[in-house]
Amino acid sequence: MTTPLPTAAAEGAGAPDTTEAPASPWKLALHRLRHQKAALVGAAIIAFFVLAALLAPVLTAISGTRPDTVDKKAVDPYLGGLPRGALGGISPQHWLGVEPLLGRDIFARLLYGAQISLLVAFSAALLITLIGTVLGITAGYFGGRTDALISRFMDVMMSFPSLIFMIALLSVARDVNRVLLLIGVMSLFSWPYIARVVRGQTLSLKHREYVEAARASGTRNSRILFGEILPNLTGTIIVYVTLAVPGLIGTEAALSFLGVGIRPPTPSWGQMISDAVLYYKVDPMFFILPSACLFLVVLAFTLVGDALRDALDPKGSRT
């Protein structure tokens, strides 16, 4: 009869989409982000830790300590090897104090621990982005049997108790490169979450007019995937990866805490916490410092990820 316009449900409230579109969604997102104090604080914390990790050799040269140098003079053998001095042995030589027993410098160990934590988390994030995006797009775009196969696989992977399985795998694995092993094992169980989101988005993008038009005009699948679909997924992917990073950092810490992650003498935060738990009553600083680092980094990534989601993916998505 009359032009069948969108239904009445959108009336009034649906006004924003009749306004002119902003120049670019990225600019809009950046604009929104600037007005989020929480996101800025988060970004600053991340920048701080990334810099600290990158500059670890420089900073430890300045402080004059090494992460694995044993300093028996800094601990008191008559007090069961507790650090000498207040607050876990803070002194001009040891800026953040020393470990009980061995007297290794906490400042240096935290810096090198940050290197490991961030390296493992970022590499794993990169890997799951790659695997998750490729499999998610493939499943969503090609559909049919490909989709059924990949989706079933994802379901099975997600019905595993991931932490337990990661530990089991790490405990039987032949001891090669612990860092690579950790990255691999952590990625193995984390990619389905990103793949699922990417698959859903691809499914809805697939039926947009411009994609159908490209397909109808005989554009190659690879061109459509990388030219039309992938660019529209970047926002979502960035949000999910950012939100996956704190989980990965926490998992690395948990694995190292349980003794199946990074092995001594390489320092890692989880390992430090695991050592410190024994001393929580007598040397709380040793325990608080790595925990605080872990807390701050996880918090920072969550803040930024949350703000990114609000800015890039306003509808958000539920787990």
């Binding site: 009359t2 032009t3 316009l5 969108p6 239904t7 009445a8 449900a9 959108a10 009336e11 009034g12 649906g14 006004a15 009749t18």
Partner: peptide, 21 residues
Amino acid sequence: GESGSGKSVTSLAVMGLHRGA
């Protein structure tokens, strides 16, 4: 009227079901 002409909003306002308006 077309979508956005205000016809549904009118009815919701009469019923007192307009939220946030």
